[in-house]
Amino acid sequence: MTKIGYARVSTIDQDFEIQQQRLRAEGCVIVRAEKVSGASREGRTELATIIEFLREGDELIVTRLDRLGRDTRDVLNIVHECEQRGAFVTILDPHVSTRGEMGHIILTVLGMVAQMERRFIKERQREGIERAKSTGRYIGSKARIDYQKIRQLSAQGVGVTAIAKEVGCSRMQVYRVLSGAS
């Protein structure tokens, strides 16, 4: 039986060091981490790698449920995939494990609460933006990626990997900008 930890933060500005330390303290032999939104499974390659690696009796451990996912369906699908491989999922805060039947019920309820919380946050954010717009104080968020530079480097024949390094973003973000999906 191997304990495998998964740490996740949503933005580049956040740090997952505390999560990693806690997972190691819980006895995780392997700890994988990534900086990607938990709103969906898209782009979460470290999580996919962990699930693929899981063997019978292994345990996937995360510090909080929202690190695993913010959508109830995603969380339950992840748990189901782990169980299909004979592995368990454990959430440290609050301590819940799929080793027992009660753990499944609690995870379902916690997943629903996380999803509701996400909706409330988005609603409050939208209301705040609308209020700021109506008073003329909303200026939008600061651009994190220089789209013009990406397009310029691409036009000069620079490859996607080199562009990503130059601009300081992922290759996927470069592809999105170049495809016009940004």
Rank of each mutant, 00 (worst) to 15 (best):
G103R: 02
M1W: 05
H80Y: 11
T2M: 12
L23H: 08
V113H: 04
Y175Q: 13
A114I: 01
L60K: 01
S97V: 01
M112Q: 13
G168I: 02
R99N: 12
V79P: 10
I4K: 02
D93V: 03
Q115K: 01
V62T: 10
H95V: 13
M102I: 15
R124P: 06
T11D: 07
C82P: 04
T135Q: 13
I106C: 08
I105N: 00
E166T: 13
M116R: 10
G180Q: 05
R119C: 07
S134D: 11
T108A: 12
I30N: 08
Q19W: 08
I12A: 13
M1L: 12
Q148L: 14
I121S: 01
L92C: 09
G136K: 04
R44H: 05
S10M: 06
H104C: 09
E101V: 14
R32A: 14
Q21T: 15
Y6G: 05
R151V: 11
R131S: 13
S179C: 09
I163A: 08
I121M: 03
N77A: 14
E46I: 09
I121Q: 00
S40I: 06
T135Y: 07
R41G: 12
D58Q: 04
Q115C: 03
G180M: 08
A33T: 11
V174S: 00
I51Y: 08
G27C: 09
M112D: 13
E123A: 15
